[in-house]
Design a protein around this nucleic acid. Structure first.
Length: 263
DNA sequence: GCGACAG
DNA sequence: ATCTTGTCGC
């Protein structure tokens, strides 16, 4: 059985080489197959899940926003965490930490990890699943932010990205009908054998008619979730909007929780 | 040297 | 991520 790994928490003071080394440790500790405490197929029908005995799983959406100082520069990161159960919001927490390093593709967890872990520490409910705004296994060293935080906390997690960091879709991902999943395989830029299944391009929504199209989401396992399940979970949770509901709520809360803006 | 690059 | 007007479509 896996266990929490606070020793592998992201540290913004590490050198780039040390960050890469840590990410390889994360990838080694990560479990890219199903090991969840609930039935993923019940997510789309919370009523049924409740009726069939146990409580619906606690699904948590996580997203960040940034705060600027008097000079107008981003100096703090705010992490918004929204916990849902059976489609209802049961708790919301947020945390703000100083911003230590700039955004560098491949090292997002070192920039945004501190506020996320601080916010999760404030959460009173026990998450069954964490949904992140970013990649999981679709990452140069198979250790995106969803994987990193998932491993540190040892909670099942899924990465939901709006654009593709690396990897190759096995088919064209333009103009896909809703409900479609296209496999994303590793390529030369990824530390994995070519052809490794990293995740899926997932089309949660699509316009009914004419000449405009919605881009797919890029869904990948964070920790203790397989690629198929990760994609199905996102499809089940994105009934009304492109983003799965917990992430969409966190996205909105990340703005609303900013100091001096009410809420 | 050139291209690619989550949020 | 964040800065923002206009524009298209239901």
């Amino acid at each position: 059985m896996s266990q929490p790994r606070p020793d592998l928490a992201p540290d913004a003071d590490l050198s780039r080489a040390e960050m890469e080394s840590l990410q390889r440790e994360i990838a080694d500790a990560a479990v890219f197959e199903d090991d969840v405490s609930f039935d993923p197929t019940t997510l789309s029908n919370p009523l049924e899940a409740t009726a069939s005995g146990g409580e619906p799983p606690v699904v948590v959406g996580i997203d960040q926003s940034f705060l600027t100082n008097d000079e107008g520069e981003q100096d703090r990161a705010l992490s918004a965490v929204v916990a849902t159960c059976g489609g209802e919001v049961i708790e919301r927490v947020s945390a703000i930490t100083p911003l230590e390093i700039p955004y560098v593709p491949g090292f997002l967890s070192f920039r945004e990890g501190a506020p996320i872990l601080a916010a999760l520490a404030k959460l009173s409910v026990d998450p069954d699943l964490l949904l992140f705004d970013g990649s999981g296994r679709i990452h140069f060293r198979q250790a995106g932010i969803a994987t990193h935080i998932g491993v540190v906390r040892d909670v099942p997690s899924v990465g939901v990205a709006k654009s593709l960091l690396c990897g190759t879709p096995v088919e064209d991902t333009d103009e896909l009908p809703a409900g479609t999943k296209i496999a994303i395989e590793s390529n030369a830029r990824v530390d994995a054998p070519d052809g490794t299944l990293l995740g899926y391009a997932v089309q949660t929504r699509q316009y009914d008619s004419p000449n405009r199209y919605i881009n797919p989401l890029y869904v990948s396992p964070g920790h203790r979730v397989g690629p198929e399940t990760a994609a199905d979970i996102v499809l089940a949770l994105a009934s009304s909007y492109k983003l799965p509901e917990p992430v969409r709520l966190a996205d909105r809360y990340a703005d609303d929780a900013k100091p001096g803006l009410g809420g």
